[in-house]
């Protein structure tokens, strides 16, 4: 595999990282994602790192860069699915990922993005979702 897939999910883009990221693959993902944000006009990106058993400073920096670039392109990024051991290690490494929004899973990440843009018309992704914007 030489690309991390970037999938439209409702009005956000979902990036599910399923492979041990080589540095070049991480850099390519940054570019692919920026192009797709512009091409689709979405305002939210979810990066699912459930499958990653480590996040080192390189991948941590990639996540921070993606979040910054997305923000410049008017899209918010939420990183979801971080394993507990990865969180402990990242903080001890000295990389607490300040400035990156996180949620425990994709569903909570979607909710976070929706609440970040309450004025935007949002397609219902969950039929039973009755929480209206205040």
């Amino acid at each position: 595999m030489d690309r991390v897939p970037v999938l439209p999910l409702g009005d956000v883009l979902l990036v599910s990282i399923q492979v041990d990221l080589e540095d070049q693959l991480a850099l390519r993902l940054q570019e692919d994602l920026a192009e797709k944000i512009v091409a689709t006009g979405v305002h939210g990106v979810i990066i699912d790192i459930t499958a990653l058993d480590i996040v080192d400073s390189f991948v941590g920096r990639m996540l921070a860069t993606i979040a910054s670039v997305s923000r410049v392109l008017d899209a918010e990024t939420v990183v979801v699915g971080m394993r507990p051991a990865v969180a402990i290690t990242l903080v001890e490494l000295g990389l607490p990922l300040r400035g990156i929004r996180t949620a425990l899973n994709v569903e909570l990440g979607l909710r976070m993005l929706r609440e970040a843009r309450p004025e935007a018309p949002v397609e219902e992704l969950e039929p039973d979702d009755t929480t209206a914007a205040a």
């Binding site: 480590i54 996040v55 080192d56 390189f58 394993r83 507990p84 051991a85 402990i88 290690t89």
Partner: peptide
């Protein structure tokens, strides 16, 4: 332990780079 594995592998990744 899983946490120690994660710390070790992360450190190895930093040093290898």
């Amino acid at each position: 332990t899983l946490v120690d594995q994660t710390k070790l592998v992360t450190a190895a990744s930093e040093l290898a780079r």
